[in-house]
């Protein structure tokens, strides 16, 4: 066991860069994320927010730079490595498989089998157990869905987002990255997702990185705000020391 001192940030990102061919998507990102806080990652389209999220969740390796989880260096070569480290990401539009039901989605990639060794060998799914656990896990998170056997394609945008976040919370231990969690939602649904994030931080001390375009949302739930512009890290702001106007000024480049 590595002893984690009180001062070790949950996540330390050190001078990460990422190039795709000649395109420099990220040009040196550095920040610390304290356990139990919410960080908003903001910036205009093409600022590099999603690229950074994909590096932290093992989709792309960084071109240079490091990041550390609980003080340990992370080198993820595939999404499964980030998931194993306890980092869960809810992607915009890519969170769930519409053709599968809720329980099959929650357990996607983490199926339990039945029938002992033979069941494991052939991957015989234990759907009754997975459905039962899904129903229990989601209800503990106060996520209400009609049934764990409901196909995702029959659900509303808010229900889908709740299931996607619920799935991340079921499996994640350390860090939750939410990519535009409210972009596709109506007013009521947005309010419920924001309340859920607030409650999870306060009651369970969970840590979030939230990518968002919505300044109202950001200003309401974030403790710190990291602003990216054209791949550069232009500001790290504490919510209590800034204003929505200042954040927008950094995003647009009116302020450096």
């Amino acid at each position: 066991m590595v002893s984690v001192s009180e001062n070790t940030p949950l996540l330390r990102v050190e001078d990460i860069t990422k190039s795709f061919g000649a395109v420099q998507a990220l040009r040196g990102i550095t920040f610390d994320l304290v356990r139990g806080t919410v960080m908003a990652l903001v910036g205009d389209n093409g600022a590099g927010k999603s690229t950074l999220a994909k590096i932290l969740s093992g989709v792309h390796p960084p071109t240079s730079g490091q990041f550390y989880l609980n003080g340990q260096s992370c080198r993820f070569d595939r999404p499964a490595a980030a998931l194993a480290a306890g980092i869960e990401t809810v992607y915009q539009n890519l969170a769930l498989i519409e053709e599968l039901d809720v329980a099959d989605n929650v357990y996607l990639g983490r199926e339990t089998t039945r029938g002992g060794a033979i069941g494991r060998l052939f991957g015989i799914l234990d759907r009754p157990a997975m459905r039962q656990h899904t129903a229990k896990a989601l209800s503990q998170l106060h996520i209400k869905i009609p049934a764990p056997t409901l196909a995702v394609r029959k659900m509303s945008g808010g229900q889908r987002q709740a299931v996607a976040i619920g799935r991340a919370l079921t499996w994640g231990r350390e860090l939750f990255i939410l990519d535009e969690p409210t972009a596709a939602l109506g007013v009521d649904e947005t309010e419920q997702v924001l309340r859920m994030i607030e409650r999870l931080r306060e009651e369970h001390g969970l840590t979030f990185i939230i990518i968002s375009h919505n300044m109202q949302d950001v200003y309401r739930i974030a403790d710190t705000i990291v602003v990216l512009r054209q791949g550069r890290h232009v500001a790290t702001l504490a919510k209590n020391d800034t204003t929505p106007e200042e954040i927008v000024a950094y995003i647009t480049g009116a302020k450096e």
């Binding site: 969740s57 989709v59 595939r78 999404p79 499964a80 998931l83 194993a84 990401t89 992607y91 890519l94 969170a95 769930l96 498989i97 519409e98 053709e99 599968l100 099959d104 996607l108 990639g109 199926e111 089998t113 052939f122 991957g123 015989i124 799914l125």
Partner: peptide, 25 residues
């Protein structure tokens, strides 16, 4: 209908990228 292989077959056809992001090879 009953195995992981079948479920992933459906998942890959449903959304290959999402299936990959879930850590499935």
């Amino acid at each position: 209908t009953q195995t992981r292989f079948g479920k992933y077959t459906i998942a890959i056809g449903g959304n290959e990228e999402t299936t990959g992001l879930a850590g499935i090879p």
